[in-house]
Amino acid sequence: MTGIHAGRVAAVTGAGRGLGRAHALALAAAGAKVVVNDLGVEPGGEGGSPGPARHVAEEITARGGQAVAHGGDITTSEGAASLVATALDTYGRLDALVCNAGFLRDRMLVNLGEDDWDAVVRVHLRGHFLPLRHAAAHWRAEAKAGRPAAARVVHTTSGAGLLGSVGQANYTAAKAGITGLTLVAAAELARYGVQVNAVAPAARTRMTERVFAGTMAPPEHGFDAMAPENVSPLVVWLASEASAGVNGRVFEAAGGRVTVMEGWSPGPTVEKAGRWETSEVGEAVRGLLKAARPPERVYGADG
């Protein structure tokens, strides 16, 4: 197959359904050989089945592409290492890593159990860190051997991770961590020819079907604004050599809209020559807040 990814190999985690499936199919359509990773778990992380990953790989090959299914648990070092090894053993290279695996266990904070916290942080944050670490080790070794790659990593964060979301403290914390991980990885790995960016998608999937169940574009547009496939063109481009020079950025993608997100940056400042007294610092802070932009509203917050 020819296209923007001709000759390249991409690994996609959580690629059995939803956004990951859409990304895997789009990468294959653009010419990539794809490693389709998925544990086949339920929306809350229960169970598991090799079926979803296998079905997507078969769908790609039926369309004339090349793909291999991978059922390893990328929240373990062994599973993440085997993801990279599968790409190298099957296709001889790895050029792009798209981290997308995740599930939800939503609870209000006072009802959120430790197991639900750990499970969600593990699949999202650890599930980004470990594949990234093993892929980065490969690309660093390649660069030191005189074979630098035009490697690309696309992480999946969320509007919840950027602004917060009521009832999703575990998910919000994990997705915010992914944003921070993206920035550090982009700075550390650029010397090896690796670019790392993140996408915050808004799309209807098993994780969000209750939120977006009634969201449709006007019929005359002939376009479902919440379809996962709307996000994939940005992911495919970021994962390609065409995105050269784009590094350490976070994008929001929803329907036909793409937004560059601008994170924490210095706002109004006040300074004195010496330590602030408690009796005076409050007035100074209130003055700063009057001069600052109001914070963005947390998703689901009252008011």
Rank of each mutant, 00 (worst) to 15 (best):
A149P: 01
L181K: 01
V84F: 09
K33V: 04
N100D: 03
G113Q: 10
A6D: 11
V199D: 08
N247M: 07
T179H: 01
I74Y: 10
G31Y: 08
G222E: 08
G3R: 09
R147K: 13
A96S: 15
R105G: 05
G256E: 07
P268K: 12
G3A: 12
Y299T: 02
P219M: 09
T205M: 13
G127Q: 11
P218E: 15
V258Q: 00
L83E: 07
E188N: 00
A273P: 04
L163P: 02
V298N: 05
D38A: 04
K272Q: 15
A62D: 15
A22M: 14
R63E: 10
E262K: 14
H128R: 04
H138A: 13
V120Q: 06
A151R: 05
V34W: 13
V9K: 11
V110H: 05
H138M: 07
G180D: 10
G40M: 14
R152E: 04
P148F: 04
G72P: 08
A69Q: 02
T86S: 10
G31L: 03
L288A: 00
K290I: 15
A53F: 01
N230T: 01
T172G: 14
G256I: 11
A135W: 02
F251R: 09
G245K: 03
L162S: 03
T86K: 10
E188D: 13
T269L: 00
V84G: 09
P218I: 12
A151G: 06
A28S: 14
A81S: 14
E280N: 05
D73Q: 03
A254C: 09
L163W: 06
E188Q: 08
R63V: 07
T259A: 15
S279N: 09
V298F: 02
A22N: 09
P228V: 04
K290A: 12
P201W: 11
N170S: 02
D224K: 13
R147I: 06
V68C: 08
V270H: 11
V34I: 11
V166L: 02
A69L: 01
R140K: 15
L83G: 12
E142M: 13
A169E: 00
M207W: 08
S279T: 15
E271H: 11
E271W: 11
G7N: 11
A15G: 09
A30G: 01
R17A: 00
G51Q: 10
V184L: 02
R257M: 15
